[in-house]
Amino acid sequence: MARRNTVLKVTDLAKSFGPVTIVSNFNLEVREGEAVALTGRNGAGKSTILRCLVGADMPDEGSVEVNGIKMSELNPDIRRDVATVIDDLDFFPDLSVVEHLDLLARAHGIVDADNAVDEVLHEVQLVPQSGQLPGTLSSGQRRRLALATAFVRPRKLLVLDEPEQRLDTEGVAWLAARLRAERERGLAIVMASHDPTLVQTVATRVVRVGEGGALAEDLPG
């Protein structure tokens, strides 16, 4: 079988806030069809690593490459390939749920945006709320909408920070299956999670993070 391409390569990543070193010497390589789960206690640096991976934070040292190109969220090609759900979403208060997704799909140049939005709305079970303004959504619905943003646009790398947050049991099961399906289609996934079921279902590798970097790399389960 042909060797799969490396989608993400992290080399000697280091990030500090003031005198406190959050991450140091962090290395990671993720290929197509691989899903890496970052685990570790609160404050271990998982989210910081993810923010550096997507260019939201600039690493102090080291490099992050996506498809062989140095990571920069200023590069539209990288923005096209990397879908992220790492922060709480901010919304336009006067645009409805469906309009938000439609805007995102069109901004990414999806030809049949209407259909794509409909399908994803069905999948995240937000069809009844499609006309609602975001301020009226529950926290769980907001989370579903955040996840929908990752699936309504093109992507080669999916970066998720605790995507199971605020989802109900059924929602977590759906998410696990969906991410697994994404992985099997060849998508690379990097996610931080505290949910063992999600990690076991989706991840092909587990990286335990703590005390400034990767502690160990395991297989899930």
Binding site: R3, E32, R183, Q200, L219, P220
Partner: peptide
């Protein structure tokens, strides 16, 4: 997939 070092035994996931 072949590239994955080991595919763990996942939890039972319903067909979707």
């Amino acid at each position: 997939p072949a590239a994955a070092p080991v595919d763990p035994a996942p939890a039972a996931v319903p067909e979707r």
